[in-house]
């Protein structure tokens, strides 16, 4: 499994597109939107907006990793790599884990860099670092779990991109990553609470200012972990079908 992890990491490090999606673009968006939405506001009025944008855009941009994961697994499937690996002693589940774990590293590093960017550039406080760490771990698990499930379900990269856009952008709007959910009508607010992005956003903001209570913290960890676990189970269930479609 380590061989798969190392190879995947090597490929990812060489991929300049991945660097653009994971770091450059979110930083540009964060800077741009903070400057637009805080223009003309004083320091006190700007604080909650900056807090919401830094955490919200971090959450939104981690979802784009689903495209890279889909691309990687579909390529392996279409060039015969999946079949070839199935002929080796490596178990199919070790292969699946080997493809998953590198993206966990990438996403966790992405979250850390984007939060530290917020801290050092916009002086965003990180009052509850342990809680932030745990939320970041569960968010990483959830997003990459969804990416893994998507990778074994879709048949083409275009389909993977389309679904990722819906999940990422649709989820961002509905869960209040772009604008406060308090501005939504009641039924939309109810929908927001069904989305893991909403809970991750709430948790990040509260842990940043130091108001995340123990019960709320555990509830949100369970939500994020539960969605990730469900996605992983879907990936495992769909994997035999994925293997059947593999060339080679």
């Amino acid at each position: 499994m380590n061989a798969v992890i190392n190879l995947e990491l090597k490929k990812s490090i060489q991929d300049k597109g991945l660097l653009f999606w994971t770091l450059a673009l979110p930083i540009v968006f964060t800077v741009l939107f903070i400057s637009v939405f805080t223009s003309g506001l004083n320091e006190e009025e700007s604080r909650p907006i900056i807090l919401s944008i830094v955490s919200g855009y971090t959450i939104m941009f981690v979802f784009f990793i689903m495209i890279s994961m889909t691309d990687s697994l579909l390529k392996d499937k279409n060039i015969g790599m999946v079949s070839r690996i199935a002929s080796t002693p490596l178990s199919t589940y070790s292969y699946l884990l080997g493809k998953w774990i590198p993206y966990m590293y990438i996403i966790f590093i992405q979250i850390v860099i984007l939060l530290l960017f917020g801290k050092f550039v916009y002086d965003v406080s990180l009052e509850q670092p342990i809680q932030l760490f745990m939320i970041s771990v569960c968010l990483t698990f959830m997003v990459t779990g969804l990416g893994l499930a998507l990778s074994v379900i879709v048949k083409t990269l275009n389909m993977g991109i389309a679904i990722t856009q819906i999940v990422t952008l649709g989820g961002a709007v509905l869960s209040g990553l772009w604008m406060p959910v308090e501005m939504f009508p009641d039924f939309l607010q109810a929908i927001s609470r069904l989305l893991p992005q909403y809970w991750a956003h709430q948790a990040f903001q509260e842990a940043m200012v130091g108001t995340l209570g123990g019960g709320q913290f555990l509830k949100i960890l369970l939500i994020l972990f539960g969605v990730g676990l469900a996605a992983f189970l879907v990936a495992i269930l769909r994997y035999p079908n994925f293997l059947k479609q593999a060339k080679g």
């Binding site: 090597k10 490929k11 070839r84 060339k247 080679g248």
Partner: peptide
């Protein structure tokens, strides 16, 4: 079975490395 080597019809290699 460990002593089996399989050469697939496709060029199943990682071309970026």
């Amino acid at each position: 079975k460990l002593r089996i080597g399989y050469v697939p019809q496709e060029i199943a290699l990682e071309e970026t490395v």
